[in-house]
């Protein structure tokens, strides 16, 4: 627990969070949640539905107000407290320094805009140069996330691509500006197992190639075990356990973590 509260060996973590959050009709959604994300690491935030995982993501991006909530505490990102940043400063950080990959691919893509337009908009938010130059980069990026890198694909509407492709588009959109931190909010929950595997491999590769830290929010312990370096367990707005992923899965210390792990389905049939 204590290693998560303080940066290790004097080197600053990329992100260090200490947060409380409330919704008007639900106080105490987050109750002094503390954790660090080190540069280039994949940290899992695990917990069941309603434990406040997505609220953490919104807090870090300072978008909780959009959902009507309010937060307090400190969010140290690259040595500065962005909890106190202005909306204008946050606009410069969102999508460029910290990106979000949301949960449900099809509702997170705008149904009225072509895939290409949405990628262009995400690129335009932090780029001034001509679209032609940006487009080349985006086509390379699409290739890198195993999507068809051609004009025809850019002209499609979200309803014309599969859910797996839509999730890859969202991932590509999130990494356009090579952020230091990617927040993935249950990115695989809408996907079938094979597509899930591919998307997890993609996250691992992007983490390696771009040296991009990932805050991987999930209730899916199996994907967490295969992808993440460390894990923090969130129960009803509190972090109950935090440590190396293997250690948590092999020797869970908190009863809640034990229950989560015991709830995993087994392939053996009971006689």
């Amino acid at each position: 627990m204590s290693e998560t509260l303080h940066p290790m060996n004097g080197s600053h973590p990329l992100l260090s969070v200490s947060l409380s959050a409330n919704y008007p009709n639900r106080p105490g959604v987050l109750d002094n949640v503390c954790f660090d994300v080190k540069s280039g690491e994949i940290l899992a935030l695990v917990g069941q539905s309603g434990s406040g995982k997505s609220t953490v993501a919104l807090c870090i991006l300072k978008l909780l107000e959009v959902k009507g909530g309010s937060s307090s505490g400190a969010i140290m990102f690259q040595g500065r407290d962005i909890e106190k940043a202005t909306e204008r400063e946050m606009r410069g950080i969102r999508g460029r320094e910290i990106s979000l990959v949301p949960q449900s691919p099809h509702s997170a893509l705008n149904p009225a805009l072509r895939i290409g337009t949405q990628l262009k908009e995400a690129w335009r938010a932090h780029a001034e140069d001509k679209w032609e130059s940006g487009k080349q980069g985006i086509l390379r990026l699409l290739e890198n996330v195993d999507l068809p890198a051609d004009e025809a694909f850019l002209r499609r509407y979200p309803s014309q691509v599969s859910v797996g492709q839509a999730q890859r588009v969202l991932i590509a959109m999130a990494v356009i500006h090579r952020p230091r931190l990617l927040i993935a909010d249950e990115p695989t929950s809408a996907l079938d197992l094979l597509t899930q595997r591919e998307v997890l491999d993609l996250f691992a590769r992007l983490n390696r190639e771009l040296n991009m830290a990932i805050l991987y929010i999930s209730h899916d312990l199996l994907s967490v075990a295969s992808l993440c370096h460390r894990a923090a367990v969130l129960e009803r707005g509190r972090i109950v356990e935090c440590g190396a992923a293997e250690q948590i899965f092999e020797h869970p210390s908190h009863p809640y973590t034990k229950r989560l792990i015991d709830a995993l389905p087994h392939l053996q049939r009971t006689p």
Partner: peptide, 22 residues
């Protein structure tokens, strides 16, 4: 309040542009 408007904000899109483009 849609998911895609939230995502557009999360990618740094300013308010007026969100309204006009999304």
């Amino acid at each position: 309040h849609s998911e895609f408007a939230l995502l557009a904000r999360a990618s740094g899109c300013p308010g007026p542009r969100l309204l006009w483009k999304h």
